[in-house]
Amino acid sequence: MLHIYCPHCRELREEEEFHAKGQAHIARPLDPDACTDKEWGEYLFFRKNPRGLHHEIWYHTAGCRKFFNLTRDTQTYEIKEIYKIGEQPEVTADKG
């Protein structure tokens, strides 16, 4: 059971109140019609599955019903950072 800090409610809540919504920071192509099938397919279906740091979108379903970003270590489940939608992570794989 993860204990997750909601940046909008500003307190730790049980994982049960949240839903994971997959990989964060996926930019929608500005002009989908100009995409090749490969580009569009990769945008729609292909996701990272790293061993280690992963940036994810989470949703406080039962609480404030707001989305936010969360950086998690997929090996240890340790949550490294929580930041709002529109913000960029401080903790990244290349920063070690």
């Binding site: 409610c9 809540r13 049980e14 049960e16 109140e17 039962a62 609480g63 404030c64 019903r65």
Partner: peptide, 9 residues
């Protein structure tokens, strides 16, 4: 606080 309550909300 909005939360889960008895599997409802």
């Amino acid at each position: 606080a909005g939360t889960v309550f008895a599997k409802s909300t």
